[in-house]
């Protein structure tokens, strides 16, 4: 995308600190920023069949009704954020494109669509120690018995609000607000310190 040439992700200025965890196959803990993903907040009434149908047709996915994320075949995902709120992620379309598509499709139906792509960033956390690192600042029970793959929750990591998605056995995705990204990242690195020695 041409935009990427002039965009800048939130984690600037701490590159040297990131080097310790910026690894492809971590033996303990790895952190990679998935920058410039498209994020659009979608609000609407899930009890309205029209709303759900239109969204599902437009995005080609099933809107999750509870704490989970669903995927389209074309790089688009929907993350449950509340009883009338979803975070739509995309690696294919830009925020304005997705915003316009949904807004046009939902014309006449009460809803809200807001491009928040620059408002969030995403950390991909991997490795056998990822749960231990998260447990230092997040009160959630991350055990596979209660937090299976595909599960999505909102909580906090120390004092930053987060959305946590379990992508795979040892891979979580953490969505955090842009202005909290550095704080959240530094807390993760600090929590991982004992595993990186």
């Amino acid at each position: 995308m041409s935009n990427q040439l002039i965009q800048e992700a939130p984690l600037v200025g701490i590159e040297s600190k990131l080097a310790r965890v910026f690894v492809k196959a971590p033996t303990s803990f790895g952190l990679v920023e998935r920058s410039f993903m498209t994020h659009v907040t979608l609000r609407g009434d899930p009890r309205s069949k029209t709303f759900v149908d239109v969204v599902e047709r437009t995005l080609q996915l099933t809107l999750p009704a509870g704490q989970a994320m669903t995927h389209s075949p074309h790089g688009c995902s929907a993350v449950w954020m509340g009883p009338d709120e979803w975070l739509i992620e995309s690696t294919e379309e830009t925020g304005p494109e997705l915003e316009t598509a949904l807004r046009n499709a939902l014309a006449g139906e009460h809803h809200a669509v807001v491009d928040v792509s620059s408002g969030f960033t995403v950390f991909e956390l991997t490795g056998p120690k990822v749960r231990d690192v998260l447990a230092k600042g997040c009160p959630l029970d991350l055990h596979p018995r209660v937090f299976p793959v595909g599960h999505s929750v909102q909580s906090h990591y120390f004092k930053a609000g987060i959305t946590l998605l379990r992508i795979d056995e040892e891979c979580y995705r953490l969505v955090v607000r842009r202005s909290f990204a550095e704080y959240c990242c530094l807390m993760l690195l600090d929590a991982a310190d004992e595993f990186l020695r």
Binding site: G66, Q67, G82, P83, P139, L140, V153, Q154, S155, H156
Partner: peptide, 17 residues
């Protein structure tokens, strides 16, 4: 720290509320 059942998210730690 209490544990509180959010009607939508289930049982969670008080620090989230």
């Amino acid at each position: 720290m209490l544990q509180i059942t959010c009607p939508w998210c289930g049982l969670r730690a008080e620090s989230e509320f």
